[in-house]
Design a protein around this nucleic acid. Structure first.
Ligand SMILES: [Mn+2]
Ligand SMILES: [Mn+2]
Ligand SMILES: [Zn+2]
Ligand SMILES: [Zn+2]
Lengths: 146, 146
DNA sequence: GGATCAGTTGACAATCATTTGCAAATCAAC
DNA sequence: GTTGATTTGCAAATGATTGTCAACTGATCC
């Protein structure tokens, strides 16, 4: 029986996808992609860089930024701008969702509302537009009671 | 009959508000506040600076930035981050609304949906949070049809 | 396996938006 | 008008991101 590699659910094989598109799969890129596919938080470039260096001492911050731009172009990752500060990234593989940011702790909580998504499309339609993408962020505090 | 100054609807008297709060109402601040209350678009700091210079040649960009921070702290203006690029500001006086950005032209269209606002609060509540503020931006293109 | 060469990288300079330090100017109060 | 703390303009500093470029390295073809 021939060996068959199976990509784990939610972790599409971007490496294969890139090489299919004629883009080189280099060592730094592989390391960065691994970090992005294995994390479930929203790290910024510096944090991705820190994690990458632990795998490959020679990776540079420039390459992290370049790779983020490359992957974003591919739709492989999403770029966020929570509050102020540096851009933060996340693997685009999972289902679409929006974010609730805890103003006290900085925690990012993911949520999804089909009703809100539908209303957004409805509103855009009424204004004569098709939505390409959107950004919904709620900033809040834990309810007083806990 | 005593002269009674009436603030035009949607243009609260921030000048008075500031001086009441013990903050100096200086010439540069007055100029900048006037610009913000008289415009209905979403200018960035450089654009506000350009408009301010036409009124008072000596105003500096630093003061524009400082005044934006001051007014934001007062809740007098909102700071936006549409797409990438510099922050953009708008007078907070009007009713709350969200934005649809035309990806082709950069046009910013304002809209308001009570249903979306209600859903947001509902979602936050379900997650154990009270919303302090939120950001909803739709990015889209004019529907193909004319 | 080794040569080839365009795509990619690391180092570091440059850019962009924004903030800060500081001496001089200016408000608001007396 | 004098006064003293606040605010300003200027220039230098900062933080995030992008650009330059010589050196390197993957994929392809022998
Ligand atoms: Mn997320
Ligand atoms: Mn607006
Ligand atoms: Zn959404
Ligand atoms: Zn809203």
């Amino acid at each position: 029986m021939a060996k068959r590699q199976k990509v784990p659910a939610g972790k599409p094989d971007y490496v294969k996808e890139l090489s299919k598109a004629g883009i080189r799969v280099t060592r730094p890129r592989r390391v960065i992609i691994d970090i992005l596919t294995e994390t479930d938080d929203h790290p910024d470039a510096m944090e991705i860089f820190r994690r990458a260096v632990q795998v490959d001492k020679s990776i540079s911050l420039s390459t992290v930024y370049r790779t983020m731009k490359l992957l974003e172009g591919f739709g492989a990752i999403h770029r966020h701008a929570f509050g102020s500060g540096p851009a933060r990234f996340e693997n685009a593989a999972g289902e679409h969702h929006d974010h609730l940011i805890d103003l006290d702790t900085g925690d990012v909580i993911e949520f999804k509302s089909d009703r809100i998504e539908a209303l957004q499309a409805e509103i855009a339609q009424a204004l004569g537009y098709d939505i390409v993408h959107h950004r919904l962020e709620l900033y809040g505090r834990k309810k007083a009671s806990g």
